[in-house]
């Protein structure tokens, strides 16, 4: 099958065309099971080595290659041609400064991530027997879904509230905070809830729901944000997540 790619290009160093523009590429002999990333590689390796993108693992776990594919955020390595059709439009994710072609400035994104104290906090001594802290299977299940986050930024850069105001911490940072707030072993919930109660915290979420379908890892982002909002209202994460309500993925 033949496939046409329409790609948003930008190279600030270019002497001939330093402005953002579209460029088309055609590829022959494409199988419907080819990954979009593979085909971007074919363009780069066979036609135009200047095409610039981030990528690494190529199977959806490293989070490097989030981009806008036919108008929706996705990882290029997780979409196959049969998912996107024979005409594919590729743009960088929105809301972060474009540096070159599909490469955007990730620093603001990671700054938001760092602002929610995305690390385990527990200042009590570890068990005297030198072994692990205990946690029930049920307590572990409460935050399982949000441990999936790979920081690809697909959710945050699909969020109109984030596009409108880059100071909003964004869905990814809230997901990361959720993973700790609802971990029975963690003791930093209060501080994190404080950070997220800020005007640029969770309340900027208008439940538009773009983030959940954008997540390549099946995280129920909107639900997680909702649970954090509830915890802020109640002043504590206690009793908010009922394990029996957690949807089973099969």
């Amino acid at each position: 099958m033949d496939v046409t790619f329409r790609i948003r290009r930008y190279n600030p160093e270019s002497t001939t065309n330093p402005k953002p523009h579209w460029q088309e590429f055609s590829l022959k002999d494409v199988a419907e099971t080819d990954r979009v990333l593979e085909l971007l590689h074919r363009i780069k390796w066979e036609q135009d080595g200047t095409l610039t993108l981030r990528r690494s693992c190529s199977h959806g776990i490293c989070g490097s290659d989030a981009m806008r594919i036919n108008g929706r955020n996705a990882l290029a390595c997780k979409l196959l041609i049969r998912d996107v059709g024979e005409k594919v439009q590729i743009e960088p994710i929105l809301g972060l400064r474009v540096l070159k072609d599909l490469v955007v400035d990730m620093e603001p994104f990671f700054e938001h991530y760092r602002s929610v104290m995305p690390y385990f906090i527990n200042n009590t001594p570890v068990p005297a027997d030198g072994r692990e802290r205990l946690q029930t299977i049920e307590d572990r299940a409460k935050f399982d879904n949000t441990t999936n986050c790979i920081l690809c930024a697909a959710c945050t850069t699909s969020c109109p509230s984030f596009w409108a105001n880059g100071k909003y911490v964004g869905p990814a940072a809230i997901v990361q905070a959720h993973r700790f707030i609802f971990d029975s072993r963690d003791q930093g919930a209060e501080e994190r809830l404080d950070v997220l109660a800020d005007p640029n915290g969770v309340w900027r979420c208008r439940t538009i729901y773009n983030c959940t379908p954008a997540c390549p890892r099946g995280i129920e982002v909107t639900r997680a944000i909702g649970e954090v909002k509830l915890a802020i209202r109640k002043g504590s994460p206690e009793g908010i997540i009922n394990v029996n309500d957690i949807p089973q993925h099969t």
Binding site: Y119, F120, N122, V126, G130, R131, E132, R133, L134, Q135, T136, I137, R140, F143, D144, T147, R179, F180, D183, R185, D186
Partner: peptide, 22 residues
């Protein structure tokens, strides 16, 4: 053994046994 226990102390969410252990 203690490297992995240390990872747990750093917050790594291991799956749990019915006794709550790794």
């Amino acid at each position: 053994i203690d490297s992995i226990i240390e990872l747990e102390h750093m917050g790594l969410p291991f799956d749990r046994t019915s006794e709550g252990r790794i």
